[in-house]
Nucleic acid binder design. Structure first.
Lengths: 247, 247
DNA sequence: CGTGCTCTTGATAGTGTTCAATACAGGTGG
DNA sequence: CCACCTGTATTGAACACTATCAAGAGCACG
């Protein structure tokens, strides 16, 4: 049991079921998946580039990121993951990790052996489809981020990122009063939007100054969704949520 | 039959089989897939963002690109595809296109109905896995491109792109004497690496001046693989080719 | 109550953009 | 076969966004 009092895979089941309804048998099989729950401190690698994992991890609590380091030692964060996500599901079919995954906040993780996942996929094609779809949505988010980094300015990228996190966190019930916890340093935000930490700082001040957001500590509140959305050139289509979560 | 005298899906079968051997039955079923072959001129959209395609297309000849347009009208190309690729395979599970796909050169395309693909996936889990894997490799390339756009300079990104294209084209037998056809304008290269066309022009001159590449018309020759690879900070791991195609 | 990290702020420098003009190249029509 | 047309490639100059450097302030933690 995790601290929210649910069986660890409940989150995953709820998520998969939001894609299409699962039969009782399918749900039961998912619930019976062997899962090994662990807690990790912030800034700990979960898997590293070059690894050949035999398991994938389901994020239960906290934020993780996927990143790469260039020859010059610069880091690019290519994805954030929120509870319910499976950050390294790809390793089910790509044997060698081509990126690293790390915690950014304290995290609770559930590790599931690939063997068990393969087994369930063989028995239930619809679950295969649901997992496949998960990885496709990840890919869609990559495309959107790439578009931002390549063609939008930092101010707009930051607005876009905040829009995305709001919707994704809403989808797992982690938003209240347009406010959510964003346990990321400006350094991590910088690595995600492909900017410097100094510039992220200035861009955040601008966003606050423009009345789009407010923040105290790690809490962020979206003050003006419509203008933030416009600033970020944000269209939730790419998230492929069933109901377009709007403010 | 395409102009290279093979049944249209031969390319796809060869590619899938390079992932893991297929049984005769699987191969036969793939060969029997209904496929509708068409030729398209350059710069034609194949599918557009927002579309709900009922088929996916197998690229038989030519180059296609996947792109998005920002609110400001700037284009980001997030992927190129070469013969043997299925640029919009994602639409099999993501009903609404979150990006557009277009030809960049004259292309021969084979359209396969989703219905037929779903059917074959249901019957052959290994083919499902192979298709899934294809989309995962696409995702891996997105991550690598994002890292480049976010954290590498234009000169290095261009070197990286040329390294990648060399290996991917080699894998489908389209490289001879370290030379391949690159039917892309500098404008298209610019949209792919997230730079301006003017800057791409200068960067290409630098690469030529440094003796890394040579080009006449649309033909590009890699003169110094090792230095190009170093300039591009290129590690082929992310392409997940079975034999690390090297020069 | 230091230590170390994060956040801020100011100044300087650089990579890359935009604008504009010119040269080139391939394809078309007379 | 040549003039013509249009898109592509090239070049120069001014400018802009963003990085880098440096230093101080705020905060959490042991």
């Amino acid at each position: 049991m995790t601290s929210n009092g649910k069986a660890p895979n409940t989150l995953m089941i709820r998520k998969l079921e939001s894609i299409f309804p699962l039969s009782d048998e399918e749900k039961q099989t998912l619930a019976d998946l062997p899962i090994h729950v662990t807690r990790l401190k912030p800034d700990r690698d979960i898997v590293r580039i070059g690894d050949r994992p035999f398991q994938s991890c389901l994020l239960l609590e906290g934020f993780t990121c996927v990143y790469k380091i260039t020859a010059e030692g610069k880091r690019q964060i290519v994805a954030f993951h929120v509870p319910g996500d499976i950050p390294d599901l790809q390793s089910l079919h790509l044997k060698v990790m081509d990126n690293s995954v790390a915690t950014v906040s304290p995290c609770t993780l559930g590790f599931i052996p690939h063997e068990a996942l393969h087994d369930i996929c063989n028995r239930f094609p619809r679950i295969t489809a649901a997992f496949w779809r998960e990885t496709l949505v990840d890919g869609s988010i990559f495309r959107e981020w790439m578009t931002g980094i390549g063609r939008r300015e930092a101010y707009n990228r930051m607005a876009h990122l905040l829009c995305e996190l709001l919707l994704r966190l809403k989808a797992v019930g982690l938003v209240e009063d347009e406010t959510f916890d964003l346990p990321l340093t400006q350094n991590e935000l910088a690595d995600a939007i492909g900017a410097s930490a100094v510039h992220v700082n200035r861009v955040l001040q601008e966003l606050r100054g423009d009345g789009l957001i407010r923040s105290k500590g790690t809490q962020v509140q979206i003050l003006d969704w419509e203008r933030l959305r416009e600033a970020g050139d944000f269209d939730p289509l790419y998230l492929h949520l069933r109901q377009d979560g709007n403010a």
